[in-house]
């Protein structure tokens, strides 16, 4: 017992980041996500044109020096719209997944902690939600609520609540059998304290890892909804909306579909790579 204080091992968090950055594919994912994030944040300064400004004389201009990635059928600069569209994509996917993590995580955590009949009923409701394909559920919600950024966030969040409830519940079932939870009860801790201080920190990594992966899905759902016209209302630029607009001229101006498609690809790929990397380093079996 005297040699406890010899040398402090590196903190688990720092070791995790170290392992994360030693994996080249994860680094590639971080780079891809950073590019999109930087483009979205710096859109007002990076955009060569106003994304809404119609220049009817230059409509459907190919990529060139004046319009780096060309213009659409209203003569709007594609690069500028792409940069501003990144804001919508990131905002919608982040907000929807963040709320799904919070709401779904809370449902799963409480349901697993309480257990019994309550758990059974809650999880069956979640199974019903899970049985809808997310695009269909999103369509129903947007059709019911009308299309706006808020409603889009609500619709996509709803499609992701059930998976997060499941992801949160499973480890809680294991955790609540562990003696430190019982110790908390014996010490008179409230259920809220046990959940927030003792259960949540033990499942938050799982939720964040899955959140990253699900953000990629949310980006796709948002683009799909925009593509079928249920996304953010025009003229606000969104990647899915740009693809739909470009689709009408796909034969003579294919780039109108290609650029937003590539942008979606970059973001989805980046998020997936980061998510996979996080998955690997947080897996306890992969430690050491």
């Amino acid at each position: 017992m005297t040699d406890v204080a010899v040398s402090a091992p590196p903190s688990p968090r720092r070791a995790m980041i170290g392992r994360l950055l030693s994996d080249p594919t994860t680094v590639a994912g971080v780079v891809l996500c950073s590019i999109v994030l930087a483009g979205a944040l710096l859109a007002p300064w990076l955009s060569p044109h106003d994304p809404l400004e119609q220049n009817i004389l230059d409509r459907l201009a190919g990529p060139g020096s004046d319009y780096l990635l060309g213009t659409d059928q209203f003569g709007r600069d594609v690069l500028s719209r792409l940069l501003w569209g990144a804001r919508v994509s990131l905002l919608v996917s982040f907000l929807s997944i963040a709320s799904a993590v919070v709401i779904g995580g809370a449902i799963g955590m409480i349901s697993g902690y309480i257990g019994g009949r309550f758990d059974l009923v809650t999880m069956q409701v979640m199974d019903v939600l899970l049985s809808f394909p997310s695009l269909i559920l999103g369509m129903i919600m947007v059709a019911l609520l009308g299309s706006s950024i808020t409603n889009l966030v609500i619709a996509i969040a709803l499609t992701a609540i059930a998976p997060f409830a499941r992801i949160a519940r499973a480890p809680v079932l294991v955790l609540k059998e562990r003696a430190f939870i019982e110790a908390g009860r014996a010490l008179g801790f409230s259920h809220l304290r046990i959940l927030l201080v003792h259960v949540l920190p033990n499942i938050v990594t799982d939720l964040l890892v899955m959140g990253t992966l699900w953000m990629a899905t949310a980006v796709r759902t948002e683009a799909s909804l925009s593509f079928i016209g249920l996304g953010v209302k025009p003229p606000t630029p969104t990647w899915g909306g740009m693809m739909r607009d470009g689709f009408e001229n796909i034969l003579d101006s294919a780039w109108l579909c290609i650029w937003p498609g590539l942008a979606i690809l970059v973001l989805v790929l980046g998020l997936n790579l980061v998510g996979d990397g996080l998955c690997d380093v947080t897996d306890p079996k992969a430690t050491q």
Partner: peptide
């Protein structure tokens, strides 16, 4: 109560200090 399994009786994410001061605060 003192538990049988010392490996599951402490929250792995909390320091020993936190484990000991939390009941005092509660």
């Amino acid at each position: 109560i003192v538990f049988q399994d010392p490996y599951s009786s402490l929250n792995p994410r909390r320091t020993i200090g936190q484990a000991l001061t939390e009941p005092l605060a509660v």
